[in-house]
Design a protein around this nucleic acid. Sequence first.
DNA 1: GTCGGCGATGTTAGCGCGAACAGGGACCGC
DNA 2: GCGGTCCCTGTTCGCGCTAACATCGCCGAC
Lengths: 358, 358
Amino acid sequence: MPGEVSAEVLQVTSATSPPASPPRRNPSLADVAKVAGVSSQTVSRVVNGHGNVVAATRERVLEALQAVGYRPNAAARALATGRSRALGVLTFSVSRLGDVRSLSGISAAASRAGYSISLLSLREATTTGVDAGIAHLTGQDVDGLVIIEAEVLDSPVFSVPASVPLVVTDAVASQRYPNVDTDQAAGAALAVDHLLRLGHRTVHHVTGPGSSRAARERRRAWEGALRSQGRPVPSVHVGDWSSASGYRIGRVLAHRPPGEVTAVFSANDQMALGVLRAFHEAGVDVPGDVSVVGFDDTAEAGDYWPPLTTVRQDFEGVGELCVSLLLDQIQHPGPVSTRTHRVPVQLVVRASTAPPRA
Amino acid sequence: MPGEVSAEVLQVTSATSPPASPPRRNPSLADVAKVAGVSSQTVSRVVNGHGNVVAATRERVLEALQAVGYRPNAAARALATGRSRALGVLTFSVSRLGDVRSLSGISAAASRAGYSISLLSLREATTTGVDAGIAHLTGQDVDGLVIIEAEVLDSPVFSVPASVPLVVTDAVASQRYPNVDTDQAAGAALAVDHLLRLGHRTVHHVTGPGSSRAARERRRAWEGALRSQGRPVPSVHVGDWSSASGYRIGRVLAHRPPGEVTAVFSANDQMALGVLRAFHEAGVDVPGDVSVVGFDDTAEAGDYWPPLTTVRQDFEGVGELCVSLLLDQIQHPGPVSTRTHRVPVQLVVRASTAPPRA
DNA sequence: GTCGGCGATGTTAGCGCGAACAGGGACCGC
DNA sequence: GCGGTCCCTGTTCGCGCTAACATCGCCGAC
């Protein structure tokens, strides 16, 4: 029990229980068959659109279906066919924005394909937790599995039964599984190039936690973009994705000697928001004194103050691609390529970037 | 990265079975039983912790379990027991923040109780869509159903089979189902009282879409709080929860005669963010010229500029309470009260509110 | 007129599991 | 030493569905 909840009774209705028949059992194919005067197999055929059923029979079956309120029993179907038409999704934070949007894409794509989603979100990526989670989901008879932000899989400890098709996002350098990810490197390069082209001498970077592969890739690409143009590479500032960590870092940046920091690339929008707040507090003008670029293009980024220039990720696209790869594996079993599929990004220029003050 | 990792599952398989046995089939209770030299029923008892099994036997069974890599087949179990240990969640926007956080709470609580989540997110709340969704989920053999933001259920068209325990959030005026919701009225009252106590003459309101019950309740409470203190009730401004709509409204508010608008209560944080941006653009000082209060306390609200005073909702608490009510119904079938459970809120005072300029 | 063929429907046999019951051995009290 | 009682374990059966096969009846070809 999650504890103290003040409850106010608005209205108490005695539950709507008509003089109902006690056998609460759901109607089965056999029940429908009896009503329609056919065999249950014929009903099955109608329900699944299989085989040829003559129009008159189909009509009668459809009526009976309607009459008894038949709903197929997924468990029985799964048991008989060995397929569940369900996809498992394992995630480590339903609260992180990107994960959620990927989940949304997965959900939509799965739904479109007639698959349902079995969701398991683990608080922490402990060995036992992940193992249990995988066991749980594969035991649930999922036809396939998506693991979001699957950095833990880098650890050799974890394994997924080879019989279950699997796609991961934001995952393993070791490339053991098919992998879908935003084109992190291209995004970071877009951000840096944009700032350099505006005339900034170099770009400071607020990175995400080292445990995140996305953070590492963005950081590497940031560094690469600077180096390839012969620019100095300032030391990075490590945040944890939260706006609070961005604020903390922003306060540090704001108190550097004037002119030292003229451009900041934050590895996500939330940290950029924190940086902006710190700059406002310190009287640093954005983009007058410092330009700021984010990453993600969250729904609110355009209404930050100032509106944030950022790199738009197609999270939903990532989710959809995961599902599409998974369905492909399910329909065409066999060896799969473990290549990484890159989802393109896009730079959205708003008001937080400008040429440096002369 | 040490990439050479052989999956345990594969090892075991190749060790147990002669050279090439293609049976893709997962090991069943019977397989384990054969290895352990007992009946499958005994294995079942060990797996489920039922009945009394003598230590020696249990030991042998546990070893066999390990050896063949048994994973229970959820479909078969559901078919045999009539229970799936899964909860269905129907939602209409995995992208909306509150819904996601509730989902997170649901997921955590369900997981703790050994239940998995079957997720279905509908893009739109059309009659057919919802009906299909409900059918889909109940057909999935969920033991219970949570509907998030279930405003559609206000329509008498929708019905859920009485056999499926159901809890809804943010739902029906008609009170046909057990209901969990944030204490919207208390939250709005907190916001308004805070502003009035600071000395503001009245409070303007940016409301959510009329289709949202949460929006309607907040609006009603805002109006009630003003009236109860004999304050004038300005006309409301209707947004759609997005920061963009807040911005649009903020531009209107910013251009009112000076002194007319000194306090704004926005029905969520995102719209408040948009209002803030509009005020910044127009040179309206917050909180000097106008105070702004939001609702939700999103993770970023404390790093808005200025940091936003807002009403904190316990979304996770809502989710957990949903699950707890649901499990209660599942374990104790029978008539249920359709009362509304209110989850308390909390005012978080930050820097966006201050007494009006003298 | 006979036969082959085919489309429509019915029958059978499990899928893997657990509930219910059936047995059989050890132990108890007297 | 005997019946009763428990405890442990095995057997049977069916959950609802579908795959595979069996059957039936109709048609056209020769």
